[in-house]
Simulated scan of single mutants.
Amino acid sequence: MSHPAQALAVRWASFLAHDRRRSPHTVRAYVATAHRFLEFLGRHRGEEIGRYGLLTLPASDLRAFLADRRASGLGASSAAREMSAVRAFLSFAAEDLGEIPQLPRTRAPKRPRTLPRPASPDDALALAEEAGSASEDWTAARDMAILLLLYGSGLRIAEAMGLPASVLPIGRTLRVTGKRNKTRVVPVVDAVREAITAYTQACPYPLTGSTPLFLGARGGPLNADLVRRSVRSARRRLGLPDSLTPHALRHSFATHLLAGGADLRSLQELLGHASLSSTQIYTQVDAAQLLDIYRHAHPRA
């Protein structure tokens, strides 16, 4: 069933991308949820859903949507994200009509507080070196440079892919644009700088101006999935756990800094977290590691 409110979801996509400056991935996920929600409402209520109808939805409709999604196998974290997207969409619907959002009260599933699984420094370096020796062409040097950058400077993989060639030559710090266009300065250690220099010298394409720093095999922007594939292959060859992903290298950066004495506020700035609560999870990681060491080492444990 087609619903008039679907046109509103299309406008919402433009609002998220241009006004809120959300990432393309977030826009796709949120708008897909909005369309899913509208399609469900049509089935659930047996009628077309217009944008005015979104202003008076009872909480029971949201709970029914949530129950439908959970019945389809959606986990608690994903369901919580869906509810967040639905609430944002309903707020936009109200504001689009000049109304004050009055959202129905319903409780989203409690998200499990998962702990990152950091790699040891030896495993992180071994992974980068293995990826860097996987082939004889310049792309191996590129993959090694990227992975060392994630571990050595705590970048998200999307942030590394977004670096322009204008950052060259690499100094002791690097200005990075992260989520919601927030910029931060991260340190660049010698090993990372040397790996990036080796890659730029081997790269057969010009690296200037706004050209992406990390290029694909044909000279275009690099797809992050290719880096993930390189990590999977290197991980398999080394016999490392599946949990050692590109994002786990960023977790490792944070955990190792905290273990070395970094304070939470400094770590928050280095990671580009919007709130300190996002950074505080690493204190739990460090405590978990200490407890694990104790259990394995203490004769009375």
Rank of each mutant, 00 (worst) to 15 (best):
L249A: 01
L249K: 00
L249F: 02
R250Y: 02
H251M: 02
H251I: 02
S252A: 04
F253E: 00
F253S: 01
F253T: 01
F253H: 02
A254H: 02
H256F: 05
L257F: 06
L258Y: 04
G260M: 05
G260Y: 02
G260Q: 12
G261L: 03
A262P: 04
A262C: 13
D263H: 11
L264Q: 05
L264P: 06
R265W: 10
S266F: 07
L267T: 08
L267N: 09
L267C: 09
Q268R: 12
L270G: 00
L270E: 00
L271W: 08
L271I: 10
L271D: 05
L271E: 06
G272K: 03
H273Y: 05
A274S: 15
A274W: 07
S275I: 08
S277T: 14
S277N: 08
S277V: 13
S277A: 14
S278I: 13
S278A: 15
S278R: 10
T279N: 12
T279I: 14
T279K: 09
Q280N: 12
Q280C: 10
I281W: 07
I281N: 08
I281P: 05
I281Q: 06
Y282M: 07
Y282A: 06
T283Y: 09
Q284H: 15
Q284S: 15
V285E: 11
D286M: 14
D286E: 15
D286K: 07
A287F: 08
A287Q: 09
A288Q: 13
L290K: 11
L290Q: 09
L290A: 13
L291H: 13
I293V: 15
I293A: 15
Y294I: 00
Y294L: 03
Y294V: 00
R295H: 14
R295E: 12
